[in-house]
Design a protein around this nucleic acid. Structure first.
Lengths: 131, 131
DNA sequence: GCTACACCTTCCCATGATGGGAAGGTCAAG
DNA sequence: CTTGACCTTCCCATCATGGGAAGGTGTAGC
């Protein structure tokens, strides 16, 4: 399997596959005579793992840790849970932050007519002298 | 007011003030004889505007539009509302995305013991053959 | 006046994850 | 034997932010 086929099979772009290899997330792929990278079932499996972990919002660094645990048949599942829990807390923190922004913005927007008139409490709120 | 004092007064770092000037978000600051940037009440006001807009998650580009509207006393408030509404929709989309990640991750985590045993449905889920 | 220190200036580089694109090699089908 | 679809490496861009170097300036204490 060439890199394009591996990309299509896993949802990870060829660009990113090379990138993951360059930063050491993946071991160097074996090469054919023409220097094309060759991928087998094992590599495809790892790429799919990465793709799913990315979709869950894990950082590349965390995925590196998860991959190491995945490769180690005997790791305690606690180690995995810890990474997952830390990421989940991070997701919740980001959600709360965005939600606070949305709430504040919504409150500002409710006070603005949004018509042809120039008065706009949204801008007034952003430019207010107090904090 | 030198740049450091302006930074302290507005919550925008000196680095970022120079950056905003460099990218044209702010007009070039006037300079003293020693070439230090000088800031007055007007500039402080604009910097505070930027700081608040950033805290609401507006992009630099959107803040540029908002600043332009703010400077124009006669703009229709509709224009402001539109930018705000677009940003609010963006915030909600991002929240939904993160929430979906969190839900999936939480479901995976519930099935994992998180103890000394090596079995871990979290990793199994990430590495599964199916999508 | 001299020294120390805090501030200012510009310029370059780094982050994290991803993509664009150039210049050049390879392969398969027509 | 050409065409087009691949592949290779290398460099650059994004977005908002910070780090740090090298050098100039201002002020407080001795």
């Amino acid at each position: 399997m060439n890199i394009g086929a591996a990309a299509a099979a896993t949802g990870v772009s060829a660009k990113m596959i090379r990138h993951y290899e360059a930063i050491g997330l993946l071991p160097p792929a074996s090469r054919r005579d023409n220097s094309y990278r060759a991928y087998g079932q094992h590599e495809i499996h790892e790429l799919r793992f990465i793709s799913r972990a990315r979709k869950l919002g894990f950082s590349i660094e965390q995925i590196g840790e998860l991959l190491a645990l995945w490769r180690d048949r005997n790791r305690p599942s606690r180690d995995v849970q810890e990474i997952a829990a830390s990421h989940l807390a991070d997701l919740h923190a980001r959600i709360a932050e965005l939600q606070a922004m949305a709430d504040t913005l919504k409150a500002l927007m409710r006070t603005c007519h949004g018509d042809d008139r120039p008065e706009c409490p949204i801008l007034d709120g952003l430019g207010a002298n107090a904090n």
